[in-house]
């Protein structure tokens, strides 16, 4: 294994997805792909596993509703029960209808915010984080595929040229 990678620039998303498939079929390892917008089918072509963020959102939502139930039960029933408009203040179950709005809001609040925080942590995006796309044009209109150069950089380069790369650059592995 060499410690070089080849950065291939593409100028079309359909060409890119086809190229990704061919590069993988030829047994080369794709390190990373940078694109300016979500290219549909790219994750499948690259063989990326499905993300589990939706599952985390569900778990966070369950935590949110449980927290809301615990909080209101503690505050309104256990800690300081009050007679408000004659509503049952001694039983969470009987007073529950008027707690539904906040149970719902807390579910959404927890699910949405904690999922987004998880996304930011997993993808390492937060304030003061430095951008790491090697070519600034890949956030605007170009696409970049980083391929492990392997033992034969020339062969990989010519394959990338053949599948439609417009520019090639060999760099050290970062």
């Amino acid at each position: 294994m060499s410690n070089k990678i080849i950065q291939a620039i593409f100028d079309d998303d359909d060409v890119l997805v086809a190229a990704v498939k061919k590069v993988r079929e030829s047994g080369n390892h794709i390190e990373e792909v940078f694109t300016p917008f979500p290219v549909h089918g790219l994750d499948k072509a690259m063989g990326l596993k499905d993300t589990r963020l939706a599952i985390t959102a569900f778990i966070y939502g369950v935590i949110g509703i449980s927290f809301a139930v615990w909080m209101m039960n503690f505050m309104m029933i256990d800690d300081w029960a009050q007679n408000i408009g004659g509503k049952p203040s001694f039983s969470y179950a009987e007073n529950m209808p008027s707690f539904v709005p906040i149970m719902f809001e807390m579910t959404v609040f927890f699910a949405a915010h904690l999922m987004v925080i998880t996304f930011y942590m997993r993808s390492k995006i937060w304030p003061f984080q430095e951008a790491s796309n090697p070519d600034p044009r890949t956030t605007s209109h170009l696409f970049m595929m980083e391929v492990d150069a392997g033992d034969n950089a020339d062969a990989v380069s010519s394959l990338l040229k053949k599948v439609g790369a417009t520019e090639l650059k060999v760099v050290d592995k970062h």
């Binding site: 300016p36 963020l53 995006i125 790491s132």
Partner: peptide, 22 residues
Amino acid sequence: LSFGWSGRAKDWQRFEEVSLVL
């Protein structure tokens, strides 16, 4: 402001999932 967004394929996959769930 961009939080160091770099446009990796995995980031986009997560981005789309997060958008849909949100």
